[in-house]
Simulated assay, not measured.
Amino acid sequence: MTRYVIRRFLGMIAVMFTVVTIVFVIVRVAPGDPAAVMLGPDATAADIATLREKLGLDRPLILQYLYFLGQLLRGDLGQSIFLNMPVLSALAERAEPTFFLTLFSILIASAIALPVGILAAYKRGSLFDQVATTLAMLAASIPSFWLGLIFIQVFAVRFSWFPVSGYGGPDASFIVRLSHLILPATTLGIVSSALITRFTRASMLDVLNDDYVRTARSKGMGEFQVVMKHAFKNALIPVLTVIGLTAALLVSGAVVTETVFSLPGVGNLVVSAVLRRDYPVIQGALLVIAALYVLINFVIDMLYLVVDPRVRY
């Protein structure tokens, strides 16, 4: 087990080192002078030279890379040009909406997908199975921004059940902010549930006809216990994998949904940074999102040890 944990941890470090290197190279190989691109066409030569010196772009490439690594080790992601504040602080201010949006979305997706996938596999070939598979394919093909706009039109505009957009004022309570997250979280949850449903169904089909399941039935064990304790538990590893990947994708892929619902999250910040050519914010956001992606996958790998004792050996 110790070897398994160490191997996964070293793999996580290797992936993050690769991501850091790629992010560093992308900014430096972009067409033109990054400082000139950030400041726009109206910038003077003196402004560009000042920014190049501030960003360290006037140094040799290897020294820039070493300085960049040193900044990251100190937890310094740079300074936002347009916000005039540390990138880490800007990301931290926008983290709450994105975190809760991702959390509620994955909870909604799992609440929909797991029961439907299990029941569809148990009733393979039935009308329920066919309808569930069709709806899963339909949900996977629906653009999240379109579904979000439909929800806004129906539930926010027509019925006035939920706020149209935003995240409440600075002093808004958690309940008020939760009401702003219901529609976007439901939007992402429905779209994300499609993949989890299909993986759950496929994984359950792989184990429902195994010998240990038939043995449990032959001993007179109830169907619910057979399906949940023996079949689903052994089918859980692929399901955990896809849930972890979905959660990681939601962290990085909620940009469009946050824009549609005007949520002041990380995705909205990244969109604004791209439009302003605020490279330090874009660079910092990429690194943080990549780190979260790798961390979520590491946590899922650790959950394998709990779900399947065979992994320990």
Rank of each mutant, 00 (worst) to 15 (best):
S179N: 15
T187D: 01
L77T: 09
L88E: 04
T187W: 04
N268T: 14
P86R: 13
L286I: 13
L269H: 10
T197K: 14
G284N: 08
R8W: 10
L183R: 11
Y212S: 06
H180K: 13
L183I: 12
R277W: 12
I26H: 11
R7I: 13
P41C: 08
L51S: 07
L195H: 15
I26N: 08
G117I: 04
G168P: 08
E258R: 09
L250Y: 13
P163D: 00
S203E: 03
A35Y: 15
I106N: 02
R277E: 01
L107T: 13
L303I: 14
L305T: 13
P34D: 00
V15N: 09
K219N: 02
Q225S: 13
A248K: 03
Y122P: 09
I112E: 08
T50E: 06
F232E: 00
Q130P: 10
G78T: 07
A285N: 05
M38E: 02
S203F: 05
I190E: 00
L249T: 14
T18F: 10
D33C: 12
M85D: 03
G168M: 10
V213N: 00
L292R: 04
G125V: 09
L61H: 12
V25W: 06
Q71H: 14
P264Y: 03
V131A: 01
A273W: 11
A113P: 11
V260L: 01
P115I: 11
